[in-house]
Simulated assay, not measured.
Amino acid sequence: MSKTFTKAEVATHKDEKEGMYIIVDDGVYDITSFLDDHPGGAKILKRFAGKDATKSFWKYHSKSVLEKYGGKLRIGTVAETAKL
Score class of each variant (00 low, 15 high):
67 E>Q: 15
40 G>T: 04
54 T>A: 04
51 K>R: 09
57 F>N: 01
1 M>I: 07
19 G>P: 07
25 D>A: 12
42 A>Y: 00
3 K>E: 15
9 E>R: 03
25 D>M: 08
26 D>I: 09
59 K>N: 13
56 S>H: 15
32 T>N: 08
10 V>P: 11
38 H>L: 04
6 T>Y: 02
62 S>T: 10
48 F>I: 05
68 K>N: 05
11 A>V: 08
26 D>K: 13
6 T>I: 08
15 D>K: 05
79 A>N: 03
20 M>N: 10
53 A>F: 06
72 K>H: 14
50 G>W: 01
2 S>T: 14
22 I>E: 00
6 T>V: 04
9 E>Q: 12
68 K>F: 03
49 A>Y: 02
49 A>M: 03
22 I>H: 00
80 E>S: 14
43 K>W: 03
38 H>T: 12
1 M>L: 09
38 H>C: 04
28 V>E: 05
12 T>P: 04
9 E>F: 11
11 A>F: 04
53 A>V: 02
28 V>A: 13
62 S>Q: 15
4 T>C: 14
23 I>H: 02
27 G>R: 02
26 D>Y: 09
58 W>T: 06
54 T>P: 11
26 D>C: 15
44 I>S: 05
41 G>V: 05
51 K>W: 04
47 R>E: 12
30 D>E: 03
13 H>K: 06
55 K>M: 10
44 I>N: 03
59 K>R: 07
33 S>K: 09
71 G>V: 04
73 L>R: 01
68 K>W: 02
57 F>E: 00
22 I>Q: 00
19 G>Y: 01
57 F>D: 01
35 L>V: 07
17 K>Q: 14
72 K>V: 13
79 A>Q: 15
46 K>A: 15
26 D>G: 14
56 S>I: 15
56 S>A: 14
32 T>K: 00
63 K>T: 13
69 Y>A: 05
26 D>V: 10
55 K>P: 07
10 V>H: 04
43 K>S: 15
36 D>S: 06
46 K>D: 08
50 G>S: 06
12 T>W: 02
81 T>E: 14
77 T>V: 09
83 K>N: 15
43 K>R: 12
47 R>P: 12
5 F>M: 02
54 T>G: 13
82 A>W: 02
16 E>F: 00
59 K>V: 06
20 M>H: 03
75 I>F: 11
27 G>P: 11
83 K>Y: 07
20 M>A: 05
75 I>A: 12
1 M>N: 04
10 V>S: 10
69 Y>G: 06
4 T>W: 05
73 L>I: 03
67 E>R: 10
26 D>L: 11
82 A>N: 08
72 K>Q: 15
11 A>S: 12
43 K>Y: 07
48 F>L: 05
73 L>T: 02
11 A>W: 02
67 E>F: 09
77 T>K: 13
5 F>A: 01
35 L>Y: 11
70 G>H: 03
13 H>P: 12
55 K>F: 08
10 V>A: 08
65 V>E: 01
17 K>F: 10
84 L>C: 11
28 V>S: 09
18 E>Y: 01
9 E>D: 13
5 F>R: 06
24 V>A: 02
46 K>Q: 14
30 D>G: 04
79 A>M: 14
61 H>Y: 03
19 G>C: 01
61 H>P: 06
8 A>Y: 03
27 G>S: 09
60 Y>K: 10
42 A>W: 00
44 I>W: 07
